[in-house]
Design a protein around this nucleic acid. Structure first.
Lengths: 356, 356
DNA sequence: TTGTAAGCGTTATCAT
DNA sequence: ATGATAACGCTTACAA
């Protein structure tokens, strides 16, 4: 008899079925406050019964919006991207938005091109992933063009900054405490490429913590890497060739840490017996090399979810929800590549080991 | 004076400026054949001058299409996904489509849910990635619901199958030839999980080639893995514990190959001196473990590009472009984990080595 | 609180 | 080959 299972029901169908006007159904859909409670419930029931879903195209056309969010990134770390995508999608689905992805590393696109592309695609807003998210030019341009955006980053710039922050400073501080607690005093540090904000945050967080713990931070224990496996190898060589080599090395990402382990092993050092090694990222690599890597994991998916929520709040003009930055703490993950320092080894300055 | 740099020009603006009707501009945009050459050029010039871009929402609403393509996958391999996304996007941008991603591994969604979601989002078509793409139920349901789709897969089912195939059979055959050419005769094989199409394709391709080369394929040289690092470890133990252990092991993905190297090293075997190891995928891991992994790389991005092209052709009803399957050949990548068999070692059955 | 009617920018129908 | 005009499904002044 009834044909309530027809696929493409429209707002008018719902209006007729619930005995109200299109306008009222629209109000219910858009959570307008100006609807009587009784009416709202009645209409909502019909909507549910028909499993009606408003047509995003029509909504976009009429309302001047697209219900499309963009995810912008140049990050080469596929795992990070994947996590971020899934996090954003969770929220998108819930709130009726679609996610459009916008990788832009390879073509070396300029900010203006990114912004232009966003406007052409009529995206309602964008989420920017690191390290691109740390580029002032880009989010400056977005702000200027009034494109709503939220960044994922390692630090907030000011109170007006729309950003979800993973508190990397405190995370690396925790790592420093952990290593010192293990008895390490000569700790090598491999930085990321110069000029990146996260490079600075991680280094400062680490060395500040070291100082607080009463460990002098020696210049020669800090070498600059490039977040690549090869640079990890190179930096490890430098670090381990010193007269007083470190007993532990913290590489500021996992790729470099893998390079360190590789080099140490080649030099005849056993990890973690002779050298503790830790990384940052908890990448796929971390559990697939031996020893498995002690590292730091950012709550990427949770960050992405929060970012999406904030972004949509901003778009829908619930500015109070969107205003401030959000801060999340990364997690220290202890695996097999770090270990308490061997007192015997320590006395021999990292040279030939005396059996304990 | 002139305001030709206004952002939101519409089809009517273009029509006025070029002195034709909206309909004609629409025809030009949509490459309709029924437009005079002179008119077409005139209109096109105005379009270019204004850098006019049709509003996808309006187009979708009027034309019953969304200009949205979906990418569906459950693949946990983030690198594969990333490559596929970039490939599809290349084409999307060129042809005016947006890409919406649809990961669906974790929630264990049923086919019906995937199909439902696609219809709700009004996607014009979808591209399905392996291993989900090998699920008959899914693409059966898509076909039944008339959702245009293209799969990326390891084999084509029949001539009506819309699929872009990486010819894994021939790739693993090449690997077999390579290993045999290196002098290996006892070659271990670690499969993927049972029931997956790619598991079968790779195994059959490999063992068929071995037979062609006159190498008896021994049952005990084939063990079943699960595409995980841990399963690689387990399978390597089995393989290497045999009275006549293999001199080479081909694991049907890189994660497992990494596990094999790990196990071999722990057992005191040197790779590749005592054991050659090869994988499949050319994952991020392949160049970040030592020795670097000999492996097989599928042309994922190219496959994705072709798939997107085929899909759009199907959507736009250029059926002749969309009909047949496309076949691409993966590439054998030789790195440091494989080496010619040591004749001396071979005589000692993999036991203590005689210096050569 | 609720309804009426006019668009939003494009494509589709049917003339011419 | 080209042009007027009515959809497409929804939002939003403006009215009631």
């Amino acid at each position: 008899m009834s044909d309530e299972h027809k696929q493409p029901s429209t707002i008018s169908d719902i209006a007729q079925l619930s005995g109200v006007s299109n306008r009222t159904v629209s109000r219910v859909i858009n959570r307008s406050s100006k609807v009587g409670e009784a009416t709202r419930e009645k209409v909502q029931r019909v909507i549910d019964a028909q499993s009606y879903r408003p047509n995003a195209r029509a909504r976009g056309l009429a309302g001047g919006r697209s219900y499309l969010l963009g995810l912008i990134y140049d990050n080469p770390d596929a795992l990070f991207i994947d996590e971020a995508q899934r996090g954003v999608l969770n929220v998108c689905r819930e709130l009726g938005y679609e996610l459009v992805i916008h990788p832009c590393g390879e073509t070396d696109e300029l900010c203006s091109e990114v912004v232009g592309s966003v406007k052409r695609s009529k995206l309602d807003g964008v989420i920017v992933l690191p390290p691109l998210s740390e580029d002032h030019n880009l989010f400056g341009a977005l702000a200027q063009e009034k494109v709503p955006y939220v960044r994922l980053a390692s630090v907030a710039l000011d109170t007006s900054d729309r950003v979800v922050v993973s508190n990397e400073r405190s995370a690396v501080a925790e790592m420093a405490e952990y290593l010192v607690g293990l008895g390490h005093r000569r700790i090598g540090y491999i930085t990321g490429p110069a000029g990146r904000r996260s490079t600075r945050e991680r280094l400062e967080g680490f060395s500040d913590a070291l100082e607080r713990l009463g460990c002098a931070v020696r210049e020669e224990m800090i070498v600059q890497g490039a977040y690549s496996f090869e640079s990890g190898i190179e930096c490890a060589r430098q670090l381990l060739a010193q007269p007083e080599p470190p007993t532990a090395i913290f590489a500021s990402n996992d790729d470099m840490a893998a390079g360190v382990i590789q080099t140490a092993t080649e030099m005849g050092l056993s990890v973690p017996r002779d050298l503790s090694v830790a990384g940052f990222d908890d990448s796929a690599l971390a559990t697939r090399i031996r020893p498995a890597l002690t590292t730091i994991r950012r709550p990427v998916r949770a960050m992405a979810r929060l970012a999406a929520g904030k972004l949509i709040a901003a778009i829908e003009d619930r500015t109070h929800d969107a205003r401030l930055g959000v801060f999340l703490d990364p997690e220290l993950i202890i695996r097999a590549s770090t270990r308490a320092i061997d007192p015997a080894a320590r006395m021999t300055e990292g040279g030939a080991r005396v059996p304990s």
